[in-house]
Write a protein that binds this DNA or RNA. Sequence first.
DNA 1: GGGTATTTGTCCGTATGTATT
DNA 2: AAATACATACGGACAAATACC
Lengths: 258, 258
Amino acid sequence: MAQPLYLQVADELEEQIRSGDLSPGSQLPTEDDLRDKYRASRNTVRDAIKRLVGQGLVETRPGQGTFVTTKVDPFVTVLNVGDPSEVSRDEGGATYLSDVSASHRKPYITAPRVEVQTAPEVITRRLRVPSDTQLVSRHEQRYIDDIPWSLQTSYYPMEFADRGAERLRSARNIPEGTVQYLADTLRIHQVGYRDWITVRAPNPTEEDYFKLPSDGRVGMYEIFRIAFDKNGVPMRLTVTVYPTDRNQFIVNVGKVPG
Amino acid sequence: MAQPLYLQVADELEEQIRSGDLSPGSQLPTEDDLRDKYRASRNTVRDAIKRLVGQGLVETRPGQGTFVTTKVDPFVTVLNVGDPSEVSRDEGGATYLSDVSASHRKPYITAPRVEVQTAPEVITRRLRVPSDTQLVSRHEQRYIDDIPWSLQTSYYPMEFADRGAERLRSARNIPEGTVQYLADTLRIHQVGYRDWITVRAPNPTEEDYFKLPSDGRVGMYEIFRIAFDKNGVPMRLTVTVYPTDRNQFIVNVGKVPG
DNA sequence: GGGTATTTGTCCGTATGTATT
DNA sequence: AAATACATACGGACAAATACC
């Protein structure tokens, strides 16, 4: 056996997909057709298809057939700007809406789900507060062209709300952005932030929300943004998750042309 | 059938792995053992194991058995620095070696493989040169603690070598860094760069080099770094690929504490 | 709504090949 | 060489999802 039969079948189908012979969205021959064509058993054909599914090239729909996957047009998020004067801008709401609109796509953000909680250790550690500190979390879902695009949760010390930033506790969007709001109400100024970028497998909630394949083939970017005030104290932590199949990022450093 | 049998088996094994009952590196019961234990056929047991393999929880070794995977300690790369004065630093060699050493791990870089070529359109487009432009490419492999960690290829206009930066063509490392070298020899100064971050499936070469599972479960970060001179003209393009299972990134913006 | 045909999903038993110890 | 364990392959049966009449 130079090459296992199921791999021969998979490779041949893969070639047809890559060459465009089988175009995105089109249906593959049924398992029975392929069984005849390659003189293989149905299970062997299925092994070949499983491989293609694993490669993200096709998807199976029970009762319908097997189809070449279509991939969505990725959205590019700029994590910073070349100009350091813009560090006080917020990625909470306003920026997202304008950035997406600028790309001629339709953004949408849910109203935040607001909770007061003692957050997981991974959160409190990065905010450099004791693990039993009460935090306000504001969670929102973001869409582009009606497709779920990212999930964002921001954590603020509960103390901020107590000291006068009452709207942090309200389940309403803050149109001017929370960064601006905190500057206005408490004179807490964001002077910088650090983004920590990882890629991990989606959890079941994310698989469901983003309609990802359940085999963990599509990863999730997880970006922790820790923002600092002028004393170098963390003032918020924002965790955003994005499926890797529809998101890309840009980082500008120094002087770069538009 | 409330839940398919193979999923019951998979979930039970997954629970044992997550609880630490089956620790990383330890061997699972053999397929025959599991067949007896769950009163399932061997194929059903294999379906369960395939699922766990797909989740990256276990790996199979023919002739040996099935083992809980161990995960490597990730390395964190800082894509920029808060201080804009450091935009002229190079990520080519010296920086990498010192950054990795600073984390008490052992870095290693191969001597570059140097080629002169007309590069793919994706390269020339980003360098904003005609698609038939001759480019010098310098490709190197990077290791941490003797594990393959990333692959990097930098592209420079051939013209740079012709105008005096002869060492670009040499298959030797440039200890001071190519950014410094180009500044010294041609007075071409890097004043900024843009990193474009994507995640994609590994190609067969990468799967082989990084010893990744062939089901494309582990993605590759692909980072295009376009560096600009003081006229806003692209002076080089560096493409680096990193497996997502062992790499993370940090971006600093504005004033951030060390 | 119901019934039927189509198509993929799950599960079984069995045989043989290949890699490792 | 032999034993062990996973890999490939076949054939068959029934279930579940979908589409269509």
